[in-house]
Structures are given as C-alpha cells and as structure tokens.
Write a protein that binds this DNA or RNA. Structure first.
Lengths: 198, 198
DNA sequence: TCGACTATGTATAACGC
DNA sequence: TGCGTTATACATAGTCG
C-alpha cells in the first residue's frame, strides 16, 4: 500500500521496521475499532512488541477481563520461555523442585484425614500447583515450538540445497551437449583420417 | 474504502452488517498477520460476534510460517472439531460454542451484583470453563503435533530428493569425463589432420 | 444466500525535513 | 526519532448474477 509492493516478511532494517510497526499498529487498531462499531461485535487486539511493550485495544469492558487473563497467561509463558525460569523459581515459595512441591502436596492431602487442611492452606497449595502447571505447560509449548521451528528451518535448508543441485544439473546438461558436439566432431575427423591417411 | 464513504456507526441493515463483518474480519486478521510478520511482534486478535461465535487470530513468530502452511488443515479440522464440539457439548450443559459459554459466564458474573451466584453455580461454571480450557489446550497440542509430524515427513521426502539429485550429478560427472576424453581425442586427431593433410 | 467484480476510499512505503 | 507528503497498493461497499 505504499510506493511499491512489499513482500510480507520480517523487515530487516530496524528503523523501517519500527516505523512500519507504529503505522500498522495504529492502522490495525483503527480497523478493529471500525469493525466493532460497524458490525456491533466485541473485538480485542493485543500487540506485544519485541521490546516487550504491550499495546492493546478492546471494544468493551467485559472483554478486557478476558484479555487481561489471557494477557497475563501469555506474558507468564513468555517470561518463562525466555529462560528466566531459573531466576524466577525463588518466587514460588521456596520449593526448589516440582517434585518436592508435588510430594508436599501429596503428603498434605494424605494428612487430611488426621488433621484437615484449612481452606487457606488449600488455596495456597492450589496456587502453587497452578503455577507449576503453567510452568510445565509453557515449557512444553516452548519445546514444541522450538522443534517445529527447527524442522521448518531444516526444510528450508533442504529446499535450497535441492534448488542448487537442480541448477548444477541444468549446467551440466549444457556442458554435456558441448561435449557431445566435440565427440561428433571427433568422429567426423576420425572418418576423414581414415579416408585420407590410410 | 468502497463505492462510497461509509460513516463509522452500526450498520443498521442486518445482512449488510453480516457481509461487512465477514469481509472486515478477514481484513483485520490479514493485517494482524502482516503486522506480526513484518514487524516481528506477537499479535492476538479476538472477535466475538453478537451471535456468540468466537473468532481469534494469534501469532507467534516461530509458528507463523507453519500456521500459514497448515491453514487449510486447521480450517478443515476446525470444522470437524466444531462438529465434535456440538456433539460432545451436550455433556457441557448445552453450550453449542465456547464463545457462548464464555458469554454466559460473563453475563452471569456481571449479574453477580444484583443477585450473587451461589458457590454451587460458580463450581459449575468453573468446571465448564476448565473443561473448555482442556479442550482448547489439547486441540492446540494436537495441531502442533500434526504440524511437527507433517514437517518431519516433508523433510524426509526432501532428503530423498536430494539423494537422487546427488546420484544424478555423480552419474553425469562420469559421463562428462568420457566426453572430455572424446574431446581430447578430437583435439589429437585434429592435430594429426593438420600435420598430415596440409 | 453466496461469490465475483469494480469503482472508490484508505492505508502505507518511501521520501524529505 | 518523528511528522508531513505523495504515489501506490490494498481493502471493501455496493452491485450483479
């Protein structure tokens, strides 16, 4: 939509990318707003720039709640998959490992018969389990994304190799024609030689 | 952006509104996708139509390519899973879509001030939301596994193609040597011809 | 209701400051 | 870095089948 057609792929130059981000972000939000008004629907847009800045648009309050939950989830995943995991672990109330947390949970649940956990205890446990769950899930997602990405890249490399090899073959076919002509010429000469020298 | 300028306010005619919704929703998602690729940022778009249908877009740089490639797959599978949902949802107290469930939840939460939901109601809702969440997550996992598997297979095919091409090249190199020998022979003969005939 | 078309309005890439 | 301008590409409102 500008002076010339733009391929849809990551803009390599940083400043251009930044400028495009600004413009297109505004454009996207404007469109989202128009859509929500014209068509009377709820629309939410969340944009997280690679510098970690969060921009969002939402057409109505009730959605904001969902988005906030969604948002915090995404951000949690991001933080965790951004390898802050180890550092952040201290936050999770001193359980050094997932296994320890689970063991403690089991022990406490078994003790329920004797003692009975308070609601507060249970809430606490639930909270920690939930955190652990989020960690595990985001870790899984992260790993799966990594392997998918990896496979994708490997595919691209192979595609390129294939292309090169095909080019090679094309070149060699040309050369082959040249050599065939030489060979024919050799035959011709051989005939002449036969006729004239012997 | 059309034959004439359109005021930004709710389109009163229902069918026009529906058509505009379809077109603009696609447009918005396209723009969101472009933004995420061009500017290397994460973008999420959530649209809830007034009929309770949920549409969403979300990007993840590493996944974008894969998502595009498997768009058709996803579309097809969406339809299938929609059917499954309808069938299975009878379990989940008659909500036909996830969006409907969410909307109902929101409505009920908004009504809390007036009425106050009982703990039982909340437990019920929580249960349904959790089930929905599980569905969504397992669906995501499924799709990602499918993508990974598919990419892996594509990789294998490319590997094989590469092998064939390499064999071809090896063969051609041999032939080339033969032709080079022919050419040398031609030269030799040409020399002889020069020496002996003139 | 649906897709295809097209005239027109918008968004925006490149440029300049 | 950010804003204004301009030439283009793109999105889409209305229309037709």
């Amino acid at each position: 939509m500008g002076r010339r057609k733009l391929e849809i792929k990551r803009i390599s130059e940083k400043s251009s990318r930044q400028v495009a981000f600004c413009k297109r972000r505004k454009g996207l939000v404007k469109k989202a707003n128009e859509l929500s008004i014209l068509c009377d629907v709820d629309v939410a847009v969340v944009i997280i720039s690679n510098r970690g800045r969060l921009h969002e648009f939402s057409s109505n309050n009730s959605l904001t709640g969902i988005l906030q939950r969604y948002e915090s989830h995404v951000e949690a995943e991001k933080e965790i998959s951004a390898e802050i995991q180890v550092a952040e672990h201290s936050k999770y109330s001193g359980f050094t490992t997932m296994g320890e947390l689970l063991q403690t949970t089991e022990r406490q649940l078994e003790e329920t018969n004797d003692d009975g956990l308070t609601v507060t205890d249970l809430i606490h446990l639930e909270d920690e389990l939930q955190t652990a769950l989020i960690q595990v899930r985001s870790r899984k997602t992260h790993l799966m994304l990594e392997s998918a990405k990896d496979l994708h890249e490997k595919g691209k490399v192979l595609q390129e190799e294939k292309k090169h090899l095909e080019d090679n073959i094309a070149t060699m076919k040309k050369n082959r024609q040249v050599y065939e002509m030489s060979a024919d010429f050799a035959d011709l000469l051989a005939q002449r030689v036969t006729l004239n020298l012997f």
